[in-house]
């Protein structure tokens, strides 16, 4: 019997292994059933307020009652189709950037380029659409807007900063070093405050950037500086011979970087880049402190409601679950990329 052999070989191959296996099995057997009870079997999914949660398990009713806010914040209900449209189009906007073998990729790439503008138009409003100020946005909408927006806009900036920091032109070099070191030298929350309070002072009169845009600027430059250092590490790992071969063939500086150096340098920095991206995605929660209600902010607002008070565990587990889904997705994608780009001897390329 195959499965019996598998168990014997992997779980009970020696006395020590057997003991460890038994202890672990006992441990799992004692925590999984109560957890399942709490999560599902004894949980209450529908109730009007917390007094309606009479069972011993989780009171998921709070999530149901506040689901709209978790997804959209205080976006007007009659305009919420705009947010839904933004959510629905997101996979189509992002997929062509992530996979190179999807059908009609070229056409979809145009859509990807238009997507950010569509997002602005749909969320803010404009000709034909009523305007919705960003203080009405909230929940997942704010988290995704800042998290994904910051990561995607910062990526090209990171590349230019990293290249600039290796430039032989003193002006560019100094500028990049000062920028990177300054941004990396302060906590994100400082940048958020700076963006929120100080940025308007530097802008010409009449230009009033929305709070969320100021937050996006802060998050983006923060991520750009971190990403730049990661990418610079990758650039430094490139053998000198790759530069020389590219130069000897007559490739220009930009051709050399675009076709030869960056594809290899970015490949080896994927794990570290994804690491900083995940970090940033979660750090967007700090916008709570400048008055934006992201997922966590909405969660805290829900907990402040007398109807749902003291349901901390349920609310935070739900928020953690959403963050986990996105971050785990990033991490799986990076593994997929690493495998795909592996061209070594043992690589299973193509």
């Amino acid at each position: 019997m195959y499965s019996f052999n598998w168990i014997k070989q992997n779980l009970f191959s020696s006395w020590l292994n057997s003991i460890v296996s038994i202890v672990l099995i006992y441990f799992l057997a004692s925590i999984i059933p109560p957890l399942l009870d709490w999560f599902i079997f004894e949980a209450t999914f529908v109730a009007d307020d917390r007094t309606g949660c009479t069972t011993d398990g989780a009171c998921w009713a709070v999530v149901g009652a506040r689901f709209y806010q978790f997804m959209y914040g205080f976006y007007p209900t009659e305009e919420v189709w705009r947010v839904n449209l933004v959510y629905t189009m997101l996979p189509f906007g992002i997929a062509p950037l992530l996979w190179d073998k999807i059908p009609f990729r070229k056409q979809f790439l145009f859509f990807s380029m238009a997507y950010p503008f569509l997002v602005f138009f749909l969320l803010y409003g404009g000709p034909g659409l009523s305007s919705v100020a960003s203080n009405k946005w909230g929940g997942l909408l704010v988290t995704l807007f800042l998290g994904l927006g910051g990561i995607l806009i910062a990526f090209p900036l990171s590349i230019f900063l990293a290249l600039g920091r290796r430039s032989k032109m003193p002006a560019i070099l100094t500028l990049c070093i000062v920028f990177i070191e300054f941004i990396r030298g302060v906590p994100l929350i400082t940048l958020l405050f700076f963006g929120n309070i100080m940025l308007p002072l530097f802008l010409p009169e009449g230009i009033n950037l929305d709070t969320i845009i100021r937050a996006l600027v802060a998050v983006t430059i923060f991520q750009a500086a971190y990403g730049a250092e990661v990418i610079r590490g990758g650039l430094q790992a490139m053998p000198k011979g790759q530069y020389e071969a590219a130069q000897a063939l007559g490739l220009s500086y930009w051709q050399m970087n675009y076709k030869i150096i960056l594809p290899q340098a970015l490949k080896i920095t994927i794990p570290a880049l994804v690491n900083t991206a995940i970090g940033l995605f979660k750090d967007t929660s700090l916008v709570l402190l400048i008055g934006l209600l992201d997922l966590l902010g909405i969660g805290r607002a829900a907990l402040a409601d007398t109807k749902w008070m003291a349901l901390h565990v349920e609310v935070y587990v739900f928020i953690a679950g959403i963050f986990f889904i996105f971050c785990f997705g990033f991490s799986r994608y990076s593994l997929y990329l690493e495998r795909k780009l592996n061209t070594d001897n043992n690589g299973e390329n193509k």
Binding site: P239, G241, Q242, E244, A248, P263, K267, T343
Partner: peptide, 15 residues
């Protein structure tokens, strides 16, 4: 453009 070069370490582009 007019001068070809071959290196000791080949320096092919591995990707």
């Amino acid at each position: 453009r007019e001068v070809g070069m071959v290196f000791q370490q080949f320096n092919l582009f591995p990707h």
